[in-house]
């Protein structure tokens, strides 16, 4: 196993083009445990963290650009970013311990393609776009289209995520991410729920609901969003019929598995609970921000 730390996207592309068995990494927080669990070692480790573009965060012309290998600790500490996307910042901040936070990244979290990835639901809820380095350039796809199943992505051999772009949320928008873990820290989500709403006056005008860990990939739940759109938030709280419909739609969208971390029945139930709770937080943020 060799190690390389290219300084540019182009150098990385060249390394990957030369070695079909090469593996890119940023934090290696999933790669190392997977290798210890028996995943074959790649012939070449390509460390993306020495590429400036992959570790920088910029905000220009109403658009955020976040290097795919940026440590999530840099996002949670970025006050402007966290003010714009509190739910995404929360999700990113839940990936492991403080030690892990200095290594984990949005790119790694997404490309590892775990359905339970904590930053992914809110990234999708905020319509994050992934800029992907191809063999000879870049292409851009919605973040929602990167993971295709547990451990599988739509990235071709040699492709890697360079950065994500996110548009500034419209006025009156708030997002939130909640996850269920048995402990308070250091766990993989049994269920995750991201909700983003935009409030116009006393009414929700736009909403997105994305669930994690309840299906092979994070799932966008249009029915749950539909339950929110048009709902009244007068007085600061969602009305009961909207929350009930939201929870029902969230439960219905689940296609979970029984595994060591949780049961089908539990995941389904708690998906509804977390969707409701996240929606309440998102509404409150939207109103405060409006």
């Amino acid at each position: 196993m060799r190690y390389a730390a290219p300084a540019t996207v182009e150098e990385a592309q060249a390394l990957l083009a030369d070695d079909a068995d090469a593996q890119v990494f940023a934090g290696a927080t999933d790669l190392v445990p997977q290798m210890r669990a028996g995943r074959p070692a790649p012939s070449l480790l390509v460390d993306l963290k020495r590429i400036d573009r992959l570790t920088s965060v910029t905000h220009e012309d109403g658009r955020w650009t976040i290097g795919a290998a940026t440590p999530t600790a840099d996002l949670t500490r970025n006050e402007a970013f966290t003010a714009a996307f509190p739910g995404l910042s929360e999700g990113a901040g839940l990936i492991g311990s403080d030690q892990i936070q200095n290594r984990s990244s949005l790119g790694g979290n997404l490309a590892n393609a775990s359905p339970a990835a904590d930053s992914v639901p809110a990234l999708i809820a905020n319509d994050g776009q992934a800029v992907i380095a191809t063999a000879d350039g870049t292409r851009t796809v919605p973040a929602a289209e990167v993971a295709t199943g547990p451990g599988h992505t739509s990235l071709a051999d040699g492709e890697f995520i360079v950065e994500f772009t996110l548009a500034d949320p419209p006025a009156g928008t708030g997002d939130a991410y909640l996850r269920m873990i048995p402990r308070t820290e250091m766990d993989i989500a049994i269920v995750g729920a991201a909700v983003r709403v935009t409030v116009d006056g006393d009414t929700i005008s736009d909403a997105t609901v994305v669930l994690g860990a309840v299906a092979p990939t994070a799932v966008v739940v249009p029915d749950a969003a539909a339950a929110l759109v048009g709902a009244s938030v007068a007085g600061g709280t969602l009305d009961d019929s909207a929350t009930a419909a939201l929870a029902e739609a969230a439960e219905a969208a689940c296609d979970p598995i029984d595994d060591k971390r949780g049961t089908i029945a539990y995941r389904r139930r708690v998906a509804g609970v977390l969707a409701r709770r996240a929606a309440a937080i998102a509404v409150e943020r939207a109103r405060n921000g409006a």
Binding site: P33, R183, T184, E185, M186, D187, I188, R261
Partner: peptide, 14 residues
């Protein structure tokens, strides 16, 4: 669940 990730001993915040 043969790891400290999934064999859940209490952490400080628990």
């Amino acid at each position: 669940n043969a790891s400290f990730l999934d064999y859940r001993v209490p952490v400080a915040s628990d």
